[in-house]
């Protein structure tokens, strides 16, 4: 119980307190998702196609009796899709009781992020994926982009 409380606290302001972030790769970029939103990470599963939805929504999967939509993060960010392999993962996130699976090339590691490593995103409207990034994390190994789970789920 205390864990969840702790998480809710950090969620209020990740920018000022920092927290744990799961990193995953898409092409050359490293993205991060705040760990508090992640329900689980599963391997690629049979996906049921849902017609007439945007192409980045790949369909729905059966997650132990729950039907959740899955989206290709590559497609979402306007990149070419690559065939799924044994490293392809679905990161199941939940925001505001809405669950969604994110198909990513591979997951990396969990990183503890300090507040001073985090900076706000520059206001470039022209960058397509910018809307889905809530912050930039600078580490010794490079720049990581933090996904805005709310935007991902809501739009």
């Amino acid at each position: 119980m205390t864990d969840t409380e702790l998480y809710t606290e950090t969620s209020n302001d990740f920018m000022s307190t920092g927290g744990k972030v799961l990193l995953f790769d898409i092409e050359d970029n490293v993205y991060g998702v705040e760990i508090q939103y992640i329900t689980e990470i599963i391997g690629i599963q049979p996906i049921t196609i849902v017609p007439k939805v945007p192409d980045y929504i790949k369909g729905v999967i059966n997650l132990r009796g729950k039907v959740i939509p899955v989206m290709s993060v590559r497609k979402r960010f306007g990149k070419e899709e690559i065939p799924y392999d044994e490293r392809t993962c679905i990161i199941v996130i939940e925001y505001d009781n809405i669950a969604v699976g994110l198909i990513v090339d591979k997951v990396n590691e969990v990183l503890e992020v300090d507040p001073e490593q985090i900076s706000a995103t520059p206001d470039y409207k022209s960058v397509n994926s910018n809307r889905y990034i809530s912050a930039i994390i600078e580490t010794q190994t490079g720049i990581k982009l933090l996904l805005n789970c709310q935007k991902i789920v809501a739009e």
């Binding site: 049921t48 849902v50 017609p51 007439k52 939805v53 945007p54 929504i57 729905v60 059966n62 009796g65 729950k66 039907v67 959740i68 939509p69 809405i98 669950a99 969604v100 789920v153 809501a154 739009e155």
Partner: peptide, 23 residues
């Protein structure tokens, strides 16, 4: 009947003739 996720409802699945899904 399992209702569609609100995420999918944003895309008017209902208007496109899909009422929900089932396992």
């Amino acid at each position: 009947v399992k209702p569609f996720s609100p995420l999918l409802n944003n895309f008017k699945v209902k208007q496109n003739g899909m009422a929900g899904c089932t396992i």
